[in-house]
């Protein structure tokens, strides 16, 4: 309980370096699970039993990261937030604009990747039910948290002041 309370207090004032590490861990976790499954387990390079604990750890990194990001943002990335001051609203709007840019870049890179795979292997990329499921899960995990993650990434460190240190 004390640990949870100290984490709850730490997150909003976390240094930017820590926040960026959390964002990177969150972003890498679930896609690595899918990539590892597709490139290691499906071709039979490693057993599913060996991969399962690694996949569990990577999924946990994403889940814990998402919780930590929401713990940092605390509603500051929500468009409907009425309690933000002018600077916080400006940073939130920038986070949303960068989120849109991030989604566009990821989609563009995915399309280029598909074109490269298709031209190098000569095979059509089939949009199977499984693939749609993976894409939908990834979107469901990352799209809602994206503005908060960008906020955690861009927000500068909190200026310290003798008055605030004791608070």
């Amino acid at each position: 309980m004390t640990f949870a309370r100290s984490i709850f207090r730490f997150l909003p004032n976390a240094r930017r370096r820590s926040r960026r590490l959390i964002v990177l861990g969150t972003a890498a976790g679930y896609p690595l699970v899918l990539l590892g499954y597709a490139t290691l387990v499906v071709p039979g390079r490693i057993q599913l039993g060996v991969w399962a604990p690694i996949a569990l750890l990577l999924t946990a990194a994403t889940v814990v990261g998402v919780v930590a990001i929401y713990g940092f943002a605390r509603g500051r990335a929500d468009l409907g937030s009425a309690h933000l001051d002018e600077r916080q609203a400006q940073v939130r709007d920038r986070a949303w604009a960068l989120s849109y840019a991030t989604v566009v870049i990821v989609i563009a890179l995915a399309l280029v990747g598909l074109m490269v795979v298709r031209s190098s292997s000569g095979q059509d990329v089939v949009l199977s039910g499984d693939l749609i499921g993976y894409l939908a899960t990834t979107a469901a995990i990352y799209l809602p948290v994206l503005p908060a993650a960008i906020l955690a990434w861009i927000e500068p460190d909190v200026p310290t002041d003798e008055g605030e240190r004791s608070r």
């Binding site: 933000l84 001051d85 002018e86 600077r87 916080q88 909190v158 200026p159 310290t160 002041d161 605030e164």
Partner: peptide
Amino acid sequence: GINYQTVGY
């Protein structure tokens, strides 16, 4: 009527 962090920035 602002956040204390904004004063610092």
